[in-house]
Design a protein around this nucleic acid. Structure first.
Lengths: 159, 159
DNA sequence: GGTGAAAGCACCGAGTT
DNA sequence: AACTCGGTGCTTTCACC
């Protein structure tokens, strides 16, 4: 994993691709006054360096029938088996995010489900994992912010 | 917002594009035994229907110098001004996610920062917002799971 | 709503500066 | 490292089914 330094041109390329991964390289080239070949080489280098890990669609989960979001804080038994619990959580596709944390909880995860009934099943499944003492659920009433693009734009324009 | 019904072919298309938004439509066509033109039309319809909201790069935040993640629970004053607080949070690009929640906290958000010092500045900024009574921070020691693709694949293969 | 072909471009590697 | 250029292959449209 070699040290990799992004310059202004790299930032601008990422800044455009973040909003639309299918932006033609020729468009980027035109805007940055470089050749499309250069854009191509730069993107490939960033992929090889692992800066760009992949791409993904942003879908409307509500329209797909997955309107329910909850955050679940997990308290582990004294005899911590964090790794084991994480592995079990990993088997549940409805858990989209999990962190080992300091503070109130030992583990903290995000659950996406169709509805409350569906969510209940998932949370019970978490409660049943060996080593989980108890859980505390926070139900999302509204996803007010969900936007990593703002952060990216600010990163690329501050440096 | 018209009712929109996805069929098996749509699911398969999304299933492939989720892993790589630049998957050539000709590849998808070959695999699904349909024409590239059809893939094109289907994707366009899903975009118009709002199922596909956009596309985004998955970047390595750590390599970009943003290794710090924390979740911050926000307690509001009795005289709730949720909307106002959300608007203020929206002005901080380092807040990538925020939810209005039931349970322990009134609002719950995710913070991405360079390091602890940087995070402190952001959390102080949250504390300073009018209407915020106090906050409770959970620092991520490890991002053990971060994968919405698993959920998507399970959605597209269960139906 | 799907097809297949054709035109227009984009991608991407090779060779050059 | 970046540019130009050309072959290859992708996208997108359109007439037809």
């Amino acid at each position: 994993m070699a040290k990799f330094r992004l310059d202004e041109v790299d930032h601008q390329i990422l800044d455009m691709l973040i909003d639309n991964t299918r932006t033609p390289f020729t468009d980027i080239a035109k805007k940055l006054l470089i050749s499309a070949g250069t854009v191509h080489v730069r993107v490939k280098k960033m992929e090889e360096a692992g800066i760009i890990r992949g791409s993904s669609l942003t879908l409307d989960y509500v329209k797909l029938g997955y309107a329910f979001i909850a955050y679940v804080g997990i308290f582990l038994e004294k005899t911590h088996q964090t790794k084991f619990v994480i592995e079990r959580l990993n088997e549940i596709p409805n858990i989209t995010v999990a962190h080992v944390t300091t503070g109130k909880f030992n583990i903290f995860c995000k659950v996406r489900a169709k509805d409350t009934k569906h969510a209940k099943d998932i949370i019970f499944r978490i409660d049943d994992i060996d080593g989980v003492a108890r859980t505390e659920t926070m139900i999302s009433l509204e996803e007010s912010i969900n936007d990593k693009k703002r952060l990216m734009h600010s990163i690329f324009n501050e440096m």
